[in-house]
């Protein structure tokens, strides 16, 4: 059984304060804190690429757990801001980390739903190929594509990367079930041409209408009640959207994790960043819910359980 064993994260030390932009965007501190939920945004160095962020997340992983690089059998990077269009960023990461030549590498092009999709993909890929140790990276440095004068996007996104170690851990998180979906007809509401464009109202409508349904769909599929889930990890799009999903999906607010005040919406890294903080606290049998949503328009929800194999 393949399980989430450990998560390494990298959030750059440099911060850009939203409080210094209140006048520029004709807004106030309570809106920034209570509605967006982002006081400052993490910002990578201009010359840093997605692979550099992945490398630093990997260093954090190695501080938390030990394994031989030779043991890694697959290396997957979720990004839509790769180092370059050719080659895939996972190949660059593979080279930088000195992974084995028998290690499979590929990228997944998804945004904020990417981590949940990625967990299903790597789980299936490892099981299908008899692999026992794999790495799932997330790194989408949006600071390279944000228009700093666009109020719809300038106050939200931060840079970060994560790496999730999946193995045959006896005390990890194992997937119980997933729900996926897409509304491709709405892709123009969140896309990059020169810079990132977001139709905030359309993305809000999509999220409010779709994500609560997806969450309840995966619960129903597994014949689980909301009360049986210990914690919820929703993509940290904004505080407003997390609160909206919580209310519309009927989730117990105290169980919904929220923490993006000090670094912003980190796209596919938002869920694993939250998970990394709680990973050691789960007890055998605990169940957690995940849901990612965004670019595509795309969504994925899942329930995981802490295993208790001894």
């Amino acid at each position: 059984m393949i399980a989430i064993s450990e998560i390494g994260i990298y959030i750059p030390d440099t911060r850009v304060s939203n409080l210094e932009l209140l006048e520029k965007f004709e807004t106030d501190e309570s809106f920034v804190r209570e509605k967006i939920g982002v006081v400052q945004r993490a910002r990578k160095q201009p010359n840093e690429k997605a692979s550099d962020l992945c490398f630093k997340a990997f260093e954090n992983l190695k501080e938390k757990t030990s394994f031989d690089h030779e043991e890694i059998e697959c290396c997957i990077v979720i990004t839509q801001n790769p180092d370059m269009s050719i080659p895939h960023t996972s190949a660059i990461v593979h080279g930088a980390l000195g992974l084995s030549e028998s290690c499979a590498c590929f990228d997944i092009s998804l945004g904020c739903s990417g981590y949940v999709y990625g967990l299903s993909i790597i789980n299936a890929f490892m099981l299908a190929n008899g692999m026992t140790k794999g790495l799932l990276f997330t790194a989408d440095p949006y600071s390279d594509i944000i228009d700093e004068n666009d109020k719809n996007t300038a106050l939200i996104f931060g840079d970060a990367a994560t790496v999730t170690l999946l193995d045959e851990s006896k005390s990890g998180l194992v997937p119980l079930g997933f729900d996926f979906g897409s509304k491709g007809a709405g892709y123009k509401n969140l896309m990059k041409t020169d810079k990132l464009f977001m139709n905030g109202r359309a993305v809000f409508n999509f999220t409010a209408a779709t994500v609560p349904v997806s969450i309840n769909k995966v619960l129903n599929k597994l014949n689980l009640a909301e009360s049986e889930i210990n914690r919820w990890y929703l993509h940290q799009g904004s505080k407003y959207i997390v609160d909206t999903i919580t209310a519309r999906a009927g989730l117990e607010p105290d169980k919904v994790v929220f923490d993006m005040y000090e670094y912003g919406n980190t796209i596919s890294s938002s869920i694993p960043i939250l998970l990394s903080k709680d990973l050691d606290d789960f007890q055998a049998g605990d169940k957690i819910g995940l849901s990612g949503f965004g670019v595509g328009l795309s969504w994925a929800s899942a329930i995981f359980e802490k295993n208790n194999l001894g």
Binding site: F31, K35, R201, A202, F204, N205, A209, Y240, T244
Partner: peptide
């Protein structure tokens, strides 16, 4: 009522009354 609350209000209006409110009408 700020911009996010207003988007939420329009979403609920659309949902409850079954009407579509295009951006150009806002």
């Amino acid at each position: 009522i700020d911009s996010l609350d207003f988007s939420s209000l329009l979403f609920n209006i659309e949902e409850v009354f079954g009407v579509e409110i295009p951006d150009e009408d806002i």
